[in-house]
Design a protein around this nucleic acid. Structure first.
Lengths: 216, 216, 216, 216
DNA sequence: GCGTAACCGAGACGGTACGTCCAGTCTTTGA
DNA sequence: TCAAAGACTGGACGTACCGTCTCGGTTACGC
C-alpha cells in the first residue's frame, strides 16, 4: 500500500474550513448540487482547490460536513449554554417531549419535521446529500450514522418510555414502530408523490399507533 | 424562438434504440450511473452521439426509458400473449391477489417487492434513477408517474376491495394506508439503515393493519 | 500497444489551426515563451484546449509549426507567384547569389542573417524554439531538419560552385566550411557574448576564407 | 519599498547547501531539467523548500551554482594543493599548453573539449543551463561571465602568445579567432546537426588556422 | 550562561497550469 | 437521406508545483 501520507490536521486553517462550508452551502442553495463544482466552491471561498482536495475526498463529503456543521451551529445557537457537546452529539435535537400523551407528542415532533422538510433553505442540500447517499454506499453510511441515526434514537427512547408507561404494546419493536411513523413522511418528501402536510403527519400517527396500542 | 424542427419519429431506427437501451443498462450495471457517460453509451451501442441527443434530453431520460423498456419486456415474457399494452401501463404487475385474507395477500406481494429490491441486477439502475429523481423534480415526476404510481394503484384497488369486504376500516384512506405499508420498505432500501427482509415485510403488514382493522 | 487512434486530419479545422498559430506567436512575442501557456493560446485563439492537445504533443511543437507557417507565408509573399512549393521547401530562402566573388556573396548573405537575428520580432520565438530544441532532442531534430538544414544546404551549393570555379580549395569539405562561417554568428547570438554586427560577419568571412582559399 | 532584510550568510548551513547541490545535479541528470522541480530538490536534499527560496532566486540559479561547485570540485581534485582559488576563478582550466606548435596545442585542447561535451554525465545539466541562458538574458549573462568567459580567456592568452611568437598574423583579432575555433564545436553540440568528433576538431583547427597564419 | 534572533525541516496555504474527460453542437462522409 | 463518426468549443476534473507563510525545534551570537 502507498498510503499517501495524511495531512497534518493540527495545522489546518479554520478560516478556510469555515469559508468552504459557507461557500458550499450557498452554492448548492443557489444553483443546485449538480451545477455546484469544487472549483466554484474554492473560488467562492477564496481558497485553493488543493485545500479542498487535501481534506475531503469528494464534493459530497464537503457538503456533508458543511451540513453537519450547520446543524451543530443551529443547535448551538438555541441550546442552553455550556451544553454544546451534548447537542452536537445528538444532531441538534433535544429529545421528544413526554407529556404522557404519546400521540400528541409524536404529532408535535412530526409536524416540526414536516416544516423542516418543507423549508426551502434546507431542501436543496438535504436532497442532494440524500440522493448522493442512495448511490454512494459509503457516503450513505456516513449520512445515516452522523445525521439520521441520532435523530431516530430519540424516537426509540420515547417509544420505550411509552411502553414502560403501558401506552404501547409491550411486544412492539420500537425500531420498527419508529419506521412506521417516519418512513411515510420521508417517502412523500423524497419522491414528491403527494404534498407533505401537518394533516398527513397526524393521520400517520393515528393509523400507526392504532396498530400499536396495547390490546384492550 | 427558433422552433428547431422536431425529429421525425416515424423514421427512427428501432435497432439503434434497442442498442442504446442495452448499452445504457449494461454500463450503469457495470460502472454505476455516475461513471456512465453518453459518449460511452453511444460507443457501446455503436451509435453516433447525435442519435442519443436527438431523441433524449439527458442521460437520466435514456436510463428511464431503458428501464421502462426492461420492465415491459420482463412483463411481456411471463404475461399472457396479446395483453402487452395493459402490462406496460401498470409497470408489469398483474394486480395483487385477493384470497380474502388481506394480510396474507399483502405479505405475499411485499415479500416479492423485498426480493426485487434485493436483486443486485435491478439495484444499480433503480437506485440511480431514484436518486436522480430526488434531485431533478421533472425527472422525479416522470419516474413517479410512469413507474411508481401504476404500482401503487394496485394497492389502492386491493385495499378498496378489502374495505368493501369489511376487512378494513371504512374511514381509512387507502392511499395513506398503502404508504404505511410501502414506505418503511423503501426507507430501509434507499437509506440502507437496516437489512430488508421478509420478516420485516411481515412485521410491517402486521403493525400497519393493526391500526386499520375495522373497529370491533 | 494501445495506439490511441489518431485524429482524422481530413476533418481538421483550418480556421482553428490558423488562429492557434497567430495566438501562439503573439503570446510568445508579448510575454515570452515561459509565460506562454497552452491555456492562454487556446483562450486567445478562441479554441478549446483539446483542439490543441489533439493535434500537437507540446507547446514547443505548436510554436514550431507556427514558426514554420510564418516562414512559409513570409516567403510566399515576396516569392514569384506559382512557385510557393519550392519556397516552403527550402525555408523561404532563394539561394545564395553567385556573382563570382565568393567573399562578397557570403558577406551579403551573412549580413542579412545578422539583421534577421537582431530583428526583435523574430528573436523571442527563435530563441525559445532553439532553447527547447537544445534540451528536447526530438524537437531539436525537427528544428534542424525543417528549418536549419534547408538553409545550410544553400551554403553547400554555393561553396561547391566556388570549388568548381576554383575559388575554393578542392579538398575543403563544404559542410565544415559552412560551419566555420555560420557557427560564430550563432554563437554570439545564442550566448550573447558580444554584439553581433555586420563588421563581425565580414571579419568571419575574411578569416574563414583565408584558410580555404586555393593554394597559391 | 519594504527592504525585506537579507538573510545572514554567516549562519547558512553548509550541509544543506551541499545537499541541495547534489540533489539538483542528480535530479537533472535523472529526469532532465524540465521535470526537475524545486519541491523535488528540497525533498531529495531533506531540506525545507524555504531554505532554497531563501538563498536562490530560481531553479536555474540553483543549478548554476551547483554546476559551478561541481566544476570547482572537479578542478580541486586534480589541481596542485594550495591553489584552489585560482582554479575556481578560471573555471577549473589550467591554461592551454604552449609547446610552440599552435595547431597541436589547440587540437589537444579542443579534443578534450569534445570529450567533455560528449560526456553523458555533464551533458544534461550543461544543456539545461545553456538553454535556460538562451532564453533568460540575466542568467545567460551570469553563465557567460562565470563559466564561459574564464575559459575563453585562456584561448586569448594562448593566441596572443602565438602572435608574439610570429605563429599567427599580427593583425588577427584573438577574440574572433577563438570564436572561429570554438563556435563550430558548440554549434554541432548544441544543435546536434552532426556528430562531434576528434577529427572534426582537428579539421576546424586546420581550416581556421589556415586563414590566420602569418602572410608568407 | 542566557535570552533571542536567525536558521532549519516541514508542510499548509492561495494560486496557475497542466493534461484528461465529457457535455452538447456542428460538419463531413459513406451506405 | 440518414446516421455513424468524430472534430469542435467549453468547462470541470484531480494533480503537480509555484512561491509565501507559519509552525516548532535547534543553533549560535551578543549581552
Amino acid at each position: 500500500m502507498a498510503p499517501r501520507k495524511a495531512p497534518d490536521a493540527g495545522r489546518r486553517s479554520d478560516r478556510s474550513r469555515r469559508a468552504i462550508y459557507d461557500a458550499a452551502l450557498a452554492l448548492v442553495g443557489e444553483n443546485g448540487y449538480r451545477r455546484t463544482t469544487i472549483e466554484g466552491i474554492a473560488a467562492r471561498a477564496g481558497v485553493g482547490k488543493q485545500t479542498i482536495y487535501r481534506w475531503w475526498p469528494s464534493k459530497a463529503a464537503v457538503l456533508m460536513e458543511a451540513f453537519l456543521d450547520m446543524a451543530a451551529r443551529a443547535a448551538g445557537q438555541t441550546a442552553p449554554e455550556g451544553d454544546e457537546d451534548a447537542d452536537s452529539r445528538n444532531g441538534g435535537e433535544y429529545g421528544i417531549p413526554d407529556t404522557g400523551d404519546l400521540a400528541a407528542d409524536l404529532k408535535l415532533v412530526l409536524r416540526a419535521t414536516v416544516d423542516e422538510l418543507n423549508d426551502p433553505l434546507m431542501e436543496a442540500p438535504t436532497r442532494a446529500l440524500t440522493a448522493e447517499g442512495i448511490v454512494d454506499a459509503a457516503l450513505g453510511a456516513e449520512f445515516v450514522e452522523k445525521l439520521l441515526d441520532p435523530q431516530l434514537a430519540l424516537y426509540v427512547t420515547r417509544l420505550r418510555a411509552a411502553q414502560e408507561a403501558g401506552h404501547l404494546r409491550a411486544d412492539a419493536d420500537p425500531r420498527t414502530a419508529l419506521e412506521l411513523l417516519i418512513a411515510p413522511l420521508t417517502h412523500r418528501w423524497l419522491l414528491r408523490t403527494l404534498p407533505l402536510t401537518h394533516a398527513y403527519a397526524d393521520t400517520i400517527v393515528d393509523y400507526a399507533l392504532g396498530g400499536l396500542a396495547p390490546r384492550p
